[in-house]
Structure formats: structure tokens, C-alpha cells
């Protein structure tokens, strides 16, 4: 019983791994290789020619750079803006606080995809199409992040903040020296989810950007896949190259990522 279970588990893991292994294996094959049996996909001869070719002839590195710029800037701004807003909504006292919070909560009900057409028009009217700002700014106000962070700030012991206030600490000091450091895990969760979301974002960059110098990976890669007579090798090299950075990041930060996901749930 136990070893059947173990065997099944291994099989499952294999099924999950095979596409990734296949992608990597095909990417190091020689273009036009002959396929006589299933093993030919995975066995040598290997060659890195297709990597050289893709790196030399396509803007894949630029796109990787763009993806990093956009994802990093989006993440930084989301964390900053939502932590400030959450701080105000959780700690500070002001008029219409409840109303303001309700407006933020309402944002949770607005799925981005349903407003993508008017968003395009708004961004066009602001003359931000086809620019980094156009890619980044529409994603920086995340009601989800505000709500999550607020719940963490609400859970901070009130005495802590009061005593700081009594010690004469200003609000900025309370925010930056007490609240932020104490809720680091929550913020890194938000950061990780935002980063992955932005890194994988497809529809908005697809609509927003037309110059290939500004493409992010998800929208650049398909432009290399179209056209007639494509082998398997080049497409898989493109796929591998565009996945390697994120796979490495995943392997390095796996613990934090898993923690982040389980802490805040996934974002729609």
C-alpha cells in the first residue's frame, strides 16, 4: 500500500516536471534533429547554438530587462502606496474614514479584465500608451494589498503605537520605524505576489505597448513564435531563456514565496 502510494506520488511529480524538462532538453538540441524514438527528445547530442542565435538575433534580453523594470517598479510602488494607505486607514483618525475604506473595499469587486477597454481609452487620453509609465502606473493601486496590509496593521498592539506617540514620535516615525518593520512578512508577501503577477501579466502590456523595445517577455515571446516553418528547437530556446531568470529566483526564494502565498492567498 505504502509503496503504491509512493510510486503514484513520484509519477505525479514526473508529470509536473516533464514539460519543463522537455522544454529545457529540446532547447539544447540541434536544429532539425531526427526523431526516431521518444528518447531522442531528451538524449544528446546537445548544442548551445540555438541559445547563441536567439541571444544574438532577438531582443530577448531587452525584454527580460523590461519585465524586470516593470515588475520591480510595480512591486515597489504597490508596497509603498498600499502600506501608506493602509497605515492611514488603520492607525490614523480622520473624518469619513469608514466611507474611504468602503470605497477601497469596493475596488476588490472590480476585476481588471472587465475594465480593460476603458482603461485603454483612459491611458490613451493621458498619452501614456507605449511607455513604461503606461505599463506600470495602472497596476500600482491595489485595493487587495491595502485590505491585507490594513488587517495586519490592525493586529498590531495598540499600546505599542500609543507609547510611541507619548514618547513624542511623529506619525512618519511611527509609520517607518514601528509599523513597517513589524509587518515585514506581510509586505514581502504582497511584494512577491505583485511581482509574480506583474511578471506574468499579458493582456494589459499587449494592449498598451506597440514598440518592440518596450515589450515585456510575455508579449515579446509570441512575436518570435509566429511565421511558417519553425522547428521545435528555437521556440523552446526562447521559452527556456525567458524562464530561466524566474526559475532561478524561485529556487532561491522558494521558502519566502511559499510563505507569501499561504499568508495572503492568491490574487485573482
Amino acid at each position: 500500500m505504502k509503496w503504491i502510494y509512493r510510486f503514484l506520488s513520484i509519477c505525479l511529480a514526473l508529470i509536473f516536471l516533464v514539460p519543463v524538462i522537455w522544454m529545457l532538453a529540446v532547447s539544447v538540441k540541434v536544429e532539425g534533429f531526427k526523431l526516431d524514438s521518444v528518447f531522442d527528445w531528451f538524449l544528446p547530442p546537445y548544442s548551445l547554438d540555438s541559445y547563441k542565435k536567439v541571444l544574438a538575433q532577438t531582443p530577448l534580453l531587452t525584454w527580460t530587462g523590461n519585465s524586470f523594470i516593470v515588475a520591480t517598479a510595480t512591486t515597489a510602488l504597490v508596497v509603498l502606496l498600499s502600506s501608506m494607505a493602509a497605515f492611514a486607514l488603520s492607525v490614523l483618525r480622520f473624518r469619513f474614514k469608514r466611507l474611504v475604506y468602503m470605497i477601497v473595499l469596493a475596488g476588490l469587486m472590480v476585476p481588471g479584465e472587465a475594465t480593460i477597454i476603458p482603461l485603454y481609452q483612459v491611458v490613451k487620453d493621458l498619452h501614456l500608451l507605449d511607455s513604461y509609465s503606461g505599463l506600470i502606473l495602472p497596476a500600482i493601486a491595489s485595493p487587495f494589498a491595502v485590505v491585507v496590509l490594513k488587517s495586519f496593521y490592525d493586529a498590531l498592539p495598540g499600546e505599542l503605537l500609543e507609547s510611541a506617540e507619548l514618547d513624542g514620535a511623529g506619525l512618519w516615525t511611527i509609520y517607518s520605524r514601528i509599523v513597517l518593520p513589524l509587518t515585514k512578512p506581510a509586505m514581502s508577501s504582497i511584494a512577491i505576489l505583485t511581482f509574480i503577477g506583474s511578471w506574468n501579466s499579458f493582456l494589459w502590456p499587449y494592449l498598451c505597448v506597440s514598440s518592440s523595445e518596450l515589450f515585456t517577455l510575455p508579449i515579446g515571446v509570441p512575436t518570435l513564435m509566429s511565421g511558417y516553418t519553425r522547428d521545435y528547437v528555437i521556440p523552446m530556446t526562447v521559452n527556456s531563456l525567458s524562464s530561466i531568470p524566474i526559475i532561478l529566483l524561485f529556487l532561491i526564494f522558494e521558502k519566502q514565496i511559499v510563505k507569501g502565498v499561504s499568508l495572503t492567498g492568491l490574487k485573482g
Binding site: I69, L77, V79, H127, D130, S131, S133, S176, L180
Partner: peptide, 24 residues
């Protein structure tokens, strides 16, 4: 924490520079 604040600020600046860059 201050350093993170600086980092964040510099990203904002970066984003703004991007904004300026595209209208040049």
C-alpha cells in the same frame, strides 16, 4: 527600513524618468 524607503523612492523617480523619457 529607511533604506527600503529610499529604494522605493528611487523606483518612483525611475518611473517618473520613464514617463519623461517617452515624451521626449
Amino acid at each position: 527600513m529607511k533604506r527600503i524607503g529610499m529604494l522605493v523612492l528611487s523606483f518612483m523617480v525611475l518611473a517618473m524618468v520613464g514617463l519623461a523619457g517617452c515624451s521626449q
